[in-house]
Design a protein around this nucleic acid. Structure first.
Length: 490
RNA sequence: GGUCUCGUGGCCGAGUGGCUUAGGCGGUGGUCUGCAAAACCAUUUACAGCGGUUCGAAUCCGCUCGAGACCUCCA
């Protein structure tokens, strides 16, 4: 566990040497999905980004407690339904219990995450299961004098907080600017200032998601759940908090304010934010109506898609860009990723069959160093992948007998690919064959041996018929030096 | 309007003062092959514009143009 890892901290806007508060233990909290709709490509970005970070920290030997919440209450609608809970609205429209909607979309989210080979977090708390903790935290903030009650709701007093603290420490915003620019929204008369935010919200009569509290029957404010649950499971001061860049303000800024008000200390040492995925240069988002769901990617059923893309192709595509850069979606880019991935896996198959020689013509240990350097530089997965492709070139050259490798280096190279490709990047070969395909294997090897016999007799007509007919069944025949092989096409 | 970020070759996408021709895809040439496909090897093009700092800038500073994010639920 060498301490060379650097992480870009949004708080300082710089790369900082990563020093855990209580090594080797690391606490990491990431804002998870609001489960009122299918996960789209945008949801895959933070999931995969922080999965990569979780995997790498674990690989380095740290003991990571990774908490990723599920938001199933809170988050007000921005439109005329002010005060109504997003999930409750959806539930009413479809005559379902709110928790039924939550369960349905949570299950679908988990399925998508499995498909993307995203590991489960250590703890996945739900906001609805932590109402008491949230109420207790609101009480602490009230006691500290940084909140006020108004008509059954409780609001955070940003102006008062900002006198002794810095509301804007994370986002770089100044409260004076916010005063000048906050929009006039309905229902803000309860607030002292328009930029104050709700800690507890009184429920309207028709509002069906509600809990009792000292102030009213209602529900917790927009940002409370993350503060309450991160504190509960990771403590008042923990290592890493992650999420999408769009959550930076006001969500994360307000989380800091709440925690500082309640616990008198900065809650998080390193803030990490992943950038957005764009479509035609514009953010892909639910509210923009340009989001393509993950299921649509996997099945190809969307007019924007020229074909289906496998979950691992999507994962590879996302990892080919650095997490702090925007990444632009296009069919061309995804198809490139698909081909690159195939090249990578083809080389890994070859790696198993390589034969060691007396000495190496390439510096394998240096390659390994470069891979670690890339990941240690703020989890630079695109550089890592570039280095792995250098490894691919070496593997292919050895296979073609243009280069050689020593037995020791061969073991290092195998471990290198196993560690970085499978354990850290979390890629995996697609499940193309199952148990039932033993029969197919047998049949095809018989057919191919007959074809080989025909070829030996220079009976190319017969050989081509076999190839063509199998081709019609979407089975591709490839003649290689080691003999014919087959694979099921796309 | 305010705050912030970005503008790299046909496409995607790294790189933040000199060394790295990043890498992938595509294109081109080649190897292999009965032919084909696949695979492999080699190769090609860049740093939005203008000005400044510097011995030296894609990289730092300023301006111009363009794009995006946040300011309202959002990954």
């Amino acid at each position: 566990m060498e301490n060379k890892l650097k992480i870009h901290n949004t708080l300082s806007r710089k790369k900082e040497l990563f020093e855990p508060i209580n090594s080797p233990y690391i606490g990491m909290y990431v804002c998870g999905p609001t489960v009122y709709g299918d996960a789209h490509l945008g949801h895959a970005r933070p999931a995969i980004t922080f999965d990569l970070i979780f995997r790498y920290l674990t690989h380095l030997g740290y003991k990571v407690r990774y908490v990723r919440n599920i938001t199933d209450v809170g988050h007000l609608e921005a439109d005329a339904d002010e005060g109504e809970d997003k999930i409750a609205k959806k539930a009413r429209l479809e005559n379902l219990e709110p928790m039924e909607v939550v369960q349905y979309f949570s299950d679908r989210y988990h399925k998508n995450m499995d498909q993307l080979n995203v590991k489960n977090p250590s703890i996945e708390p739900r906001a609805s299961g932590h109402i008491i903790e949230q109420i207790e935290m609101v009480k602490k903030i009230l006691e500290a004098g940084y909140a006020y009650e108004s008509n059954g709701s409780v609001y955070f007093d940003v102006k008062k907080y900002n006198k002794k603290n810095n509301y804007g420490i994370l986002s770089g915003r100044k409260i004076e600017d916010m005063i000048a620019n906050t929009r006039e929204l309905e229902g803000q008369s309860e607030k002292k200032n328009p930029y104050d935010f709700a800690l507890w919200k009184k429920a309207q009569p028709e509002h069906i998601m509600r809990w009792p509290s000292p102030w009213s029957d209602g529900f917790p404010g927009w940002h409370m759940e993350c503060s309450a649950m991160s504190t509960k499971y990771l403590g008042e001061h923990f290592d890493i908090h992650g999420g999408g860049l769009d959550l930076l303000f006001p969500h994360h800024e307000s989380e800091i304010a709440q925690s500082v008000a309640a616990n008198k200390m900065q809650p998080v040492k390193y803030w990490l934010h992943n950038n957005m995925i764009t479509l035609n240069g514009q953010k892909m988002g639910k509210s923009l109506g340009n989001a393509v769901s993950l299921d649509e990617f996997f099945t190809g059923k969307n007019d924007l898609l020229e074909q289906a893309y496998s979950p691992i192709t999507i994962r590879f595509f996302i990892l080919q860009a650095h997490y702090r850069s925007t990444i632009d979606f296009s069919n061309e880019a995804l198809q490139s990723a698909e081909k690159g991935l195939k090249k990578l896996f083809t080389a890994i198959k070859s790696l198993d069959k390589l034969i060691a020689s007396e000495k190496s013509t390439s510096n394998i240990k240096a390659l390994r160093e470069k891979c670690y350097d890339a990941m240690n530089d703020d989890f630079n997965s695109p550089i890592l992948i570039a280095n792995l492709f250098e490894g691919v070139r070496i593997i292919n050259s050895i296979k073609d007998k243009k280069e050689t490798i020593s037995a020791e280096d061969l073991e290092i190279l195998k471990k290198l690919f196993n560690d970085f490709v499978f354990d850290i990047l979390g890629l995996k070969t697609e499940e193309t064959t199952g148990k039932q395909n033993e029969l197919v294997d047998g049949l095809l090897s018989t057919i191919l041996s007959i074809r080989q016999e025909a070829k030996s007799n220079k009976d190319y007509a017969t050989a081509d018929i076999i190839r063509n007919e199998l081709g019609k069944l979407n089975i591709q025949i490839k003649d290689t030096k080691e003999g014919a092989s087959w694979e099921i096409g796309d």
